[in-house]
């Protein structure tokens, strides 16, 4: 933190010194040329700082298990499709209210979209078996703290491991009684 402030103060000082130098050259008459030079100098300092950051963040270590993993990709696809379906349902309802669709037609399409949305939600629940960032962070935290893995969240099905609502009595996937 202290180092960052020293760097900022140095950059500010360098800009100020350069600006004073240019102004001195122009006999302290602020001209557009002088302004452009000062801005250019500040930008050059900025470029130096950014290059330093590029060098500082250079790291060849592979440490991101979720980075581009097929599960992450699939999950993102499902989430995107879910959003799309919900948006489409909203749009269809608006079209129906505007009179562009009959109630029967609208109900049929919306019903089909809802069924697909439910399928996606189920698949998303199945996907979250320890492969998400949150699950990995939890696992890593538990390991580093030397503690056993956290107890399953309330509502987790003892039989299939599906995460249900906290107050669920039966599992939404396998239908068995939730014991956790």
């Amino acid at each position: 933190m202290k180092r960052a402030w020293i760097l900022r103060a140095a950059a500010g000082g360098a800009t100020l010194a350069f600006a004073l130098g240019v102004l001195w050259y122009y006999h302290f008459r602020p001209t557009l040329g002088a302004f452009v030079l000062v801005v250019g100098w500040s930008v050059l300092l900025g470029a130096g700082w950014l290059l330093w950051r590029a060098a500082a963040s250079f790291d060849l270590h592979v440490d991101d298990p979720v980075f581009q993993a097929p599960e992450t990709v699939r999950r993102a696809e499902l989430t995107a499709e879910k959003k799309l379906l919900l948006k489409a349902i909203k749009e269809l309802e608006f079209d129906k209210n505007m009179g562009k669709l009959d109630d029967r037609e609208a109900a049929e399409i919306i019903g089909r979209y809802r069924a697909r949305a439910v399928e996606i939600l189920r698949e998303l629940d199945d996907e979250s078996g320890g492969k998400t960032y949150e699950a990995i962070v939890e696992k890593e935290l538990a390991r580093r703290l030397g503690q056993p893995e956290a107890a399953p969240a309330p509502g987790t099905c003892g039989a299939c491991g599906t995460a249900n609502d906290a107050d669920a009595v039966f599992c939404k996937k396998c239908g068995k009684k939730v014991t956790a």
Binding site: L50, A54, S57, F58, D59, H61, V62, D63, F67
Partner: peptide
């Protein structure tokens, strides 16, 4: 899959 390298390329 080296996020450090990608980050460095962003700064660059």
């Amino acid at each position: 899959r080296r996020p450090g390298l990608v980050q460095s390329s962003l700064w660059a």
